[in-house]
Amino acid sequence: MWSLLVEPFLEYEFLRRALIEAIVLGLGFSIVGQVLITRRLSLIGDTLSHAMLPGVVVAFLLFGANAMALFWGGWITGFLILSASWFLFHRRRVEADAGLALFAVFSVSLGVLLAARTRTTTEILHLLFGNVLAIDQWILSMSVLVAAVTWMVFLWNYRSVLMALVDPVFFESVRPSSWWRVAFLLAIFSANLTVGFASLGAMMTVGLLIVPPLVGRALGRSLFGMVGYSALFSVLVSWVGVLISFHGEVPSGPAIVAVACAGLFLLQFLRLFRRARRVTA
């Protein structure tokens, strides 16, 4: 049992790194994902993963396939899209998801035009996307930094976050946010997403952003409980997913996401079952 579950991690550094990266990102995502789900923006990760194209193309043209440059390009693009759609949403002219879709698709079209004009290809986006089996020191440090800042902001503003989650409409009516504060939060959102793309790739980022927070919601009684369960769950599925990828010879990212989703389904099924028994008893 030991040799099956633990030994691969002792023998190979790349497996250890995969696990550590998933844990670190899972911690940050457990907060960001919670907010996104409440705000009905669960698919924001998928949208932004395509919409970062123009920034990545510009970064590539200026600095070549430099991981740091691509990261900044993606981050800044994500931040601009989020800011523009928030601005529209805030003035109540457009719904949040429509605003986001608008600017995201605008951004993608700009990126494709830019790529065509400069004789690069849209496949450049794949230079930004990482793979959980190839986590280098730089992206690991960046992930720790982003997760730490996210948690600091969360703990500092615990009450506001709680209120914003429980009743966003009320929250905004009693407490108009200053623009720099919103900008800071959006920058953190964009950083979480970009660091996810750059380390785990788009699909796994979206998976870890949404599935563990859903589990947290199902199990947690308080906001801390939700975030805690969510972080714990992402650690567990990352570990199991990497092991399946190792023993079953399948790609790691999809394995982790599939395990996470299966875990969520199982949990919901058990809860349904228990509720049904309680009703009949």
């Binding site: 790349f14 995969a18 990828s245 023993h247 790609p251």
Partner: peptide
Amino acid sequence: EVEPSAKQVARLI
């Protein structure tokens, strides 16, 4: 197009 599995990378190492 295809991502490697953890096993493939481990075998290579």
